[in-house]
Amino acid sequence: MKTILIVEDEEKIREELKNFLTNNGYNVEIITDFENTESEILKINTDLILLDINIPNKNGMYLCKEIRKNLKTPIIIVTSRNNEMDELLCMNYGADDFIAKPYNPLVLLAHIEAVLKRFAPDLDKAIPFKNIKVIPAKSVIKTETEEIELSKNELKILTYLLDKQGTIVSRYELMDYLWNSEVFIDDNTLTVNITRLRKKLEDIGLENIIETRRGQGYIIL
């Protein structure tokens, strides 16, 4: 499980953010002492730092620069100042990403995932299922004898359904997920993609893997 450090002085946001990230499968660390923010941060071993730029007693950008001198941990800067200059400065001071308040929490999640992936790409990560393996990094399904390529959409749909294996995923939920990863498909395209995916699975002998539940959605059992 990845650890995320939240550096945020507003208590309410800190707590909500902590809950939110914990619910989404991250281990969350926080700091509450902003007298020596920098040394507090350096004490904690973490995979990613979520840094609010407006913390007391310190210029956030300067802090970012200082952390960067000592650590290679990816930093995402959170700010309510939404202008180009700030974004540019943050990047110059060594931040890896930048997100403006008030953010859609799901978008924040997507940013976190993207940055973590960039830093530690799971090249060998494979999702096993029955007698096949899905390898997201290569966008293929691997059987014992062959490799079948998947399109970007097909891969996303398959991995999402596998992730939720055993529960019904509604079409809306699936589209919502795809849109979050900047695949803006509509109802018809989703149907087409599901059909193609089923065809590919059939070709390797996995028939009726993706079941349709009328009026509810899809499920992989």
Partner: peptide
């Protein structure tokens, strides 16, 4: 105005996170 907008975004973010949680 910039400062005000900046300030109001904190409670707004907080409220948004609460709704998601």
């Amino acid at each position: 105005i910039e400062m005000w907008v900046h300030e109001i975004k904190t409670p707004l973010s907080s409220a948004m996170l609460t709704t998601y949680n």
